[in-house]
């Protein structure tokens, strides 16, 4: 039922990221959004912020709880998606279309393939 598209990298803390050369586009997984319930608020980092893999990257709040989203990579934030701030519910509707942050990749943290991530959330 939960979607886990091929071609993306996943983390144990339920982030996905897509590599495009030296840039990573980052979001949260379908499983993560379904656990969180209705997302109502997204607190994004600033462009230029430097993060290490495993650092808190941003915070998402739902009706039920506030959850930290962790950086899957070490690098610098190059873009943030203001659309998800205006329409947080878009993350529930389309978690893989609703990217949150783009970063330059210095190095990647521990990550999983789609099939490994599927096993994790089973």
């Amino acid at each position: 039922m939960t979607e886990v598209p091929e071609g993306l990298n996943y983390t144990k803390t339920h982030e996905w990221y897509k590599k495009d050369g030296k840039t990573a586009t980052i979001g949260i997984t379908d499983y993560a959004q379904s656990q969180m319930t209705d997302i109502v608020y997204v607190d994004l980092p600033k462009v230029g912020d430097k993060k290490k893999a495993g650092d808190v990257l941003l915070t998402i709040e739902s009706v039920k709880s506030a959850e930290d989203v962790y950086s899957p990579i070490t690098g610098t934030v190059t873009a943030v998606n203001d659309e998800v701030v205006k329409h947080p519910e878009s993350i529930n509707k389309d978690p893989y279309g609703s990217w949150l942050v783009k970063m330059t990749i210095e190095s990647e943290g521990e990550h999983l393939s789609a099939s490994e991530y599927r096993k994790l959330i089973q």
């Binding site: 319930t37 209705d38 109502v40 009706v63 039920k64 529930n92």
Partner: peptide, 8 residues
């Protein structure tokens, strides 16, 4: 059931 489609 926590929710079916959306709490809101």
């Amino acid at each position: 059931p926590l929710y079916y489609r959306s709490i809101i």
